[in-house]
């Protein structure tokens, strides 16, 4: 049995647990330091979700919520490569996404933002990486929306990503942002990421990915925790 031995979380890349400008962290961040432990089988294994966990329209958010027409907004295609820190592709691995509609409104029932729901847009989907680690899905560019963190607070346009990777150590939940968004410089969630790492969360516009007459293309590559050490056998 070959096991994946992943490298440690790089806290120079990830946001701290307590980040006072993001007010919700104050009562939810642990006050004691995390306790480092050696990795065992428990940390070096994880669930495997591949192509069988995805339904035909799951990777097309422009179609999977249709009721009586097309969703409103700017059609986009989002693609990227999921690799580990050594550049090895993460193959046949599930990517789950969810997002607001073009008006900045989530389907979620606790979202009370006074912007219209789109009867033809749901906002959730999933896809699986291929043999090169590449994922791809179609959607509508999400809108910005206000939130209660501070006066006149607005979240930048973003798409939520959840990745399982090969082991639970490689688990990642993150958000993809869009290039040139003026709200990024004001967003405490984005700014919680160490400055040198923030740019990794901003997708790149690509005319090559853009589909003529159909959808603008954005590229968002993702790096999950790698093996870091020689894999061990037993």
């Amino acid at each position: 049995m070959t096991l994946q031995s992943t490298s440690r979380r790089d806290w120079g890349s990830h946001p701290p647990l307590l980040h006072p400008p993001y007010r919700s962290t104050s009562l939810r961040a642990p006050t004691r330091p995390l306790i480092p432990i050696a990795r065992s089988l428990s940390e070096s294994t994880g669930p495997v979700y591949g192509h069988e966990s995805v339904r035909p329209l799951d990777n097309d958010l422009t179609r999977n919520g249709r009721v009586n027409g097309e969703p409103l907004g700017e059609r986009i295609v989002v693609t990227g490569r999921v690799v580990d820190e050594d550049g090895r592709p993460i193959r046949n691995s599930l990517v789950e996404v969810w997002q607001a509609n073009a008006a900045g409104r989530y389907v979620h029932k606790v979202d009370q933002h006074d912007a219209p729901l789109d009867p033809n847009f749901f906002g959730g989907g999933r896809c699986v990486t291929d043999d090169e680690g590449i994922y791809r899905f179609y959607t509508i560019k999400p809108g910005a929306y206000p939130w209660g963190n501070h006066p006149n607070a607005w979240r930048p346009n973003h798409i939520h990503f959840s990745l399982l990777g090969p082991t639970i150590s490689s688990r990642l939940v993150t958000q993809m942002y869009f290039p040139g968004d003026p709200l990024l410089a004001l967003d405490p969630i984005y700014l919680g990421v160490p400055e040198s790492a923030r740019g990794r969360l901003v997708s790149k516009f690509s005319i090559d990915v853009t589909e003529p007459g159909f959808a603008l293309g954005y590229v968002f590559d993702i790096v999950l925790r790698g093996r870091g050490e020689t894999p061990f056998e037993r």
Partner: peptide, 22 residues
Amino acid sequence: MTSNQTPSQTVGPYFAYGLTAE
């Protein structure tokens, strides 16, 4: 060649219909 880890971000308040829909 090594690459740096993609940073984490919060799951936020609206994950339910994406991750735990049923």
